[in-house]
Nucleic acid binder design. Sequence first.
DNA 1: TATGAATGAGCTTTCATTCAT
DNA 2: AATGAATGAAAGCTCATTCAT
Lengths: 207, 207, 207, 207
Amino acid sequence: MQQSSQAHENRKDKQAVIFGAACRVIREKGYHQARITDIAQEAGISYGLVYHYFKSKADLFDAILEEWWTGLFAMMDEWDRTTPGIEEKLGAIVRYFLDEYERRPDLVHIFITEISRSSANLTPTRVKWIKLFMDRIESSFADAQREKIVRSDIKPRYLTHIFLGAIESFISAMVLENQPLRGRSQKQRISGGLLEVFFNGARPTGH
Amino acid sequence: MQQSSQAHENRKDKQAVIFGAACRVIREKGYHQARITDIAQEAGISYGLVYHYFKSKADLFDAILEEWWTGLFAMMDEWDRTTPGIEEKLGAIVRYFLDEYERRPDLVHIFITEISRSSANLTPTRVKWIKLFMDRIESSFADAQREKIVRSDIKPRYLTHIFLGAIESFISAMVLENQPLRGRSQKQRISGGLLEVFFNGARPTGH
Amino acid sequence: MQQSSQAHENRKDKQAVIFGAACRVIREKGYHQARITDIAQEAGISYGLVYHYFKSKADLFDAILEEWWTGLFAMMDEWDRTTPGIEEKLGAIVRYFLDEYERRPDLVHIFITEISRSSANLTPTRVKWIKLFMDRIESSFADAQREKIVRSDIKPRYLTHIFLGAIESFISAMVLENQPLRGRSQKQRISGGLLEVFFNGARPTGH
Amino acid sequence: MQQSSQAHENRKDKQAVIFGAACRVIREKGYHQARITDIAQEAGISYGLVYHYFKSKADLFDAILEEWWTGLFAMMDEWDRTTPGIEEKLGAIVRYFLDEYERRPDLVHIFITEISRSSANLTPTRVKWIKLFMDRIESSFADAQREKIVRSDIKPRYLTHIFLGAIESFISAMVLENQPLRGRSQKQRISGGLLEVFFNGARPTGH
DNA sequence: TATGAATGAGCTTTCATTCAT
DNA sequence: AATGAATGAAAGCTCATTCAT
């Protein structure tokens, strides 16, 4: 049992190695341009071995996406216990993106470039994740409208788009220009500015 | 001369047919998944004819992008004569996206999915267009800040991201869900709501 | 009749233009790399027109070869009237190659590179020409052996190979290095040296 | 280690199989007409495997040429140790061609038809080999002239052409007519006759 | 578990040839 | 006579996937 557990650990380790390599390669070349050979090379293994750990290229890609969504939804599941206000929720989302971008920029890059806007790679399963995510935010906005914390003359769906679009645009810029996030203060500034504009608008105060 | 002009028309016509077919196919499958066979079939012509009119697949794709950017920059070139305020400018951009989406949804779809966020297809030329576009908007924001029409505590670059992100998110949603734009009133509502939130924020008035 | 004759002249003229263009292009690119488009462009006509004057690419190529062989055999047919000795005959062949190389280097180039040694383009018809040519020289050597003008311990076939090989090697060198033939004196030197070595050997006299 | 050595052997074996098949097909059809499909079929393997062992069609072709030149230059490198006279050198070259033609007629055929005279396939690298080869023979002739073993009224370059042309013509004839070389005695006769004529001329002794 | 040989469908691109005008 | 649009069969090369070892 010790041995099998050890083996199990090894299995997960190797899987993680491949996973990491895949992230790096897919981030750099895009899903369709990333070859299994590239990933295996990056991982320092033979390409045949990739198929021991993942059923197919698509399967490997789905594992990456699952990793992303799982983390995001885990964060949002906290909301059910702590019942934060809309500002905290949106702040948490922005922070999640920025934190992940600092920890695992490849993952964020892949989400932004391959999923968030590219319909090329969309399978029904992948579309479901997106919808689920947007629905959750939309209903948060609906709640906030009912509590009069957010203006009611704009549909929740619209607010969701505006908000997510702003985040994605920011992250995209960093991602595409390979900008590193330098420390907590920069994250604070970005996150603060984004929420500030979103809630109070681009017009100068007192106008 | 009549004949040559006629022939020239035919040439341009056929080119347009292929162009249209390519838009439809690329929109549906994405650039890399779109095969020349598909495009030829969609256009109702033989395989080789595509290469009679376009040097390569990349060339055909670039022609599509050029069409998009040309229209967008032509619209913005008007600004130099009419010197509109920042609100008119942003409104014009939103309207351009929505109008084009109504007229040529494929073109907008391709721009959004293949260029706006996908780094996979980015060539140096293509990156140049994007930067040029963002720079133009950024400098408009800088002007507006100097005239105190827009808050100055947020960098123009950030405002640009927030604004473009919001637009793209909207269009993306329509694009990905293949939502048709129903009439002028819907465009008005979307455009109005977007600008309203952007300028005045998501918070209810009087808060 | 005047008109039809005129038309006939025109036809032959245009045919000659295409012929010349084909020689230049095939010389430069080789038969298989030469495209009909290239030839038409070089001739200053549309590529469709090539097919008015020549049935196919192979047909055009055969016309070029025929031109070469016709000239060569016409020269050799003179022998039947003038009954020259073997030295005159071989000298005439060398001179024919050199003169043609001066007049129409493309033709010689094509013969050397595409026919003389390349089995790639050999059709049965083309092989026949070569055999005919070699047989004629071989029988000349046989005659000369009977008259004791040439050593008899080497088969006529061998002598033919040695002689033709030497010529071809020379012309090849000029052809491949694009060496121009500068005047009559150089031709004399080459031709003289070649025949001298062939008849008297590479060993110094008196050895 | 045994295993890896075995694998290495297998790899080289398979490479040799493809190499041999390529020789046969290219010999028969010429380089440009030889399709990868043909080679794979001839080798009894699948299409893609050719690309597992050779980077491209040109790469495979270059491997064949390298094989030829390597052998030829290895033979000539012996000269530096044994310092043979010009007659031995030329004899060694003739024998090399004839021996190789007996052992690997395809290789000789390819050299003759695709390289020796066809400018179509010439890349800069390939031209270098040829020049190197001719330079070596030329300088051997220059040496022999200094030692008065060879007549000095003909340029070494000319002698080189005459000699190589004669060999090539012989081999060409066998190659083009697919004549097999029957035994040592025939090789002796050809080689002897060729050198005899080259050194002593075609004229009968005592003339 | 690990390797990489082997497969072959699939893709872009080229170009001789035909044919309507 | 002249044009060039139109066709489609090849051909080279890539790469996900399978499988024997």
